[in-house]
Design a protein around this nucleic acid. Structure first.
Lengths: 223, 223, 223, 223
DNA sequence: AATGAATGAGGGTTCATTCAT
DNA sequence: CATGAATGAACCCTCATTCAT
């Protein structure tokens, strides 16, 4: 082993450690925001939950606000990764693809009260803090485009000639977001599975000729 | 005019003044929350916007937090009043009633970026502050029951034998809430009228045999 | 009844009412100070206890601080009145007079936890607020002079040739004040009567040749 | 010096610094209370006098009120340390011990206008704030017990058969407390030494057979 | 004369950020 | 790098005073 090769190795270890601690902070922030709200989450809370010192936060994030946007970004990325994975697994049938896309909203890794609480916490500040908007913008655009094209495929496939794919996409996304809200405010205690079923029912209604495919539950989502 | 009648008049004036100033504060708070977010709205902000002294706030509300819940309550009440009025005007046709109910979400008095921002601000804190949940609980229950029974009427009228009114109601409410979110985060700049159209489209899809009635725009909503 | 005589009558009634309300405020302030402390007594507290409006206070006292000095003055006057009365009733025997003077500290009207708490509240601020000192100064001087001359009489009468009346007076007054403190901090729950007995014991020790007279309890003080 | 010993050293330094700053605050608070009164001492005052930032106070004390009780505790401890030391030095003669115990009240370190003002400031709030009572309770009990047993020793030694040690102790403590008050309100400007002489005179009167020992001034107290 | 709503300066406390260790 | 003590601006709230009724 030479010095030349040892150097990079060291710095790799550093890099790894750095990344791990950063993630630790983001996770801790997410949990704090979910539990305490965006308003009442202090850096001391986050540091405590991450088992780190307050001072360390500034080594990874310039400010509390930037830590928060990192949380939002992680949330966005996780969701994007989820539906990308979903689409990859969904095969070629347009209806199955759309169903799968929508089901990603209600996947176990995505649709937790904790996560949803944080989504709404950020949406609640979106008007006041354009920064948050900016973080989501890219993710949202892609999401919207993909959903729209999924709708378009289905419209073509099903010869729903008069339908507007963009409007359908809006309706579908809105319904999913609205169903998330049920997790936070709903008194019926609807579970992920039930929300997914409602979303599928909506899809089926929107594309009645594909109702059978659209309304069928995926194998693992009932869990 | 006798002394007997004069006495109450005095205290009536007081009462009136009190109510006016209280409303002033709630309005100011709503505007601040909408503009600055729940997080960054200070009592000073509210007082300044209401053209009152900070100390006056505590004359009308025990704490800032209680002023905020009053804002939420007002929002809830305005919305309830809107759909009650809507239903009264809608006549007896079940489809027309449902359409009208949903359209209330997008009435000019209800569906303003300002108001919607505040709704989401509260929803964003709902997990952290059960108090907010408690404020809405009653309004929500009634809303849900009425919407569910509107769906049930329509199901019966249309002989959609296999449909579940509660699930339909959830889907519809969720879609409307999700469409509100478009006002805050949407990059397409959808207007109230367009959102209403999308909501009607969803309704029409859910109850296809009443599509004609459900999808028709009300006369005044295009405004 | 003529107008001439009616006028003064009217203004007498006014004067009376005024005095009554003023006293009401002073009493209320005393009770508040005793219960809440000088620090936490607000004008709103006083007004509430006096069943008057806050605004009325400023009709009788220029400021809260002046109301407080009125309380201190009343306390001082009541005490002075007590020992003046005591001396009047005590007759001519020097020892009996001194005993009686000291007993006034422990009279029912003077030696209440309530009153004593207020005395100490003022003493606690005396260094910071010379105003309070000024209020008491006159009363204190007279008190000290009288006590000193009582001691002197007794010294002469008893031929305690080497004794210093001024020092005796200081000791006696100090002991009485210190015994008051027992009412506030003492864990033994000593009552007025017991405190008076201790004070008499001290007197007896200081003037042993008059011990019999000095240590004898007055008829009504055992109560 | 090994690493093993270095570790504790580090944390020792921390501990030391902490203790020093805490003491700094308590001292500053004591001076503020003495100068401004309990009522008008603000955390800003204390911080300024301690040359620290306001925020630092809450790093050492949960609240202003707890800082104040720390002041009271320090006062109590200093006094207790003083009379413990005094008794150790006093030797075995009961009369000398009692004299010495009482003289501690008027030691230079104890009997300063500053300290006494603070004692009275707390006593003035004792009825309103039982917390203060609680702080002193333990110290007081011990003080009272020791004083009582000193009196008992002397009673036995002097064959004052009919005397009650507890009552004597109360009288003595009360006299000392009352003499302290002279420092605050007295117009004669009595000095520590004169107060001590009065206290000794009282002792001598109470235990006439030990008058010679009790009334003799200690060598250093005249200063 | 009496009221109590209105005021806003000033209080204690919190907490994002900095920086010496 | 990691730490957490130190900082002080800014928060919410209290309350003595004023003043229109």
């Amino acid at each position: 082993m030479t010095l030349v090769s040892a150097e990079p190795q060291r710095s790799d270890r550093r890099e790894l450690r750095r990344a791990r601690r950063e993630a630790q902070l983001v996770d801790a922030a997410l949990e704090c925001i979910s539990a305490l709200g965006l308003r009442d989450t202090t850096v001391q809370d986050v540091a405590a939950r991450a088992d780190m010192a307050v001072g360390s936060i500034s080594q990874y994030f310039e400010s509390k606000e930037l830590l928060f946007t990192a949380v939002l970004r992680q949330l966005s990325e996780e969701f994007e990764a989820a539906w990308r994975r979903g689409l990859e697994e969904a095969g070629g049938d347009p209806a199955a693809r759309l169903r799968r896309f929508v089901e990603c909203y209600f996947e176990p890794g995505i649709c937790q009260r904790k996560n949803v609480a944080v989504w709404f916490a950020f949406w609640g500040e979106v008007k006041a803090r354009p920064k948050y908007r900016a973080v989501c913008a890219g993710y949202d655009r892609l999401h919207d485009e993909v959903l729209e094209s999924l709708c378009r495929e289905l419209i073509v496939a099903g010869r729903y000639d008069s339908m507007d794919p963009r409007g359908m996409a809006k309706i579908i996304a809105s319904t999913c977001h609205g169903l998330w809200l049920e997790l936070l405010t709903g008194s019926d205690g609807l579970k992920r599975g039930e929300l997914a079923a409602l979303a599928r029912a909506c899809l089926a209604a929107l594309f009645p000729r594909h109702a059978l495919t659209l309304a069928a539950a995926g194998p693992d989502l009932g869990a």
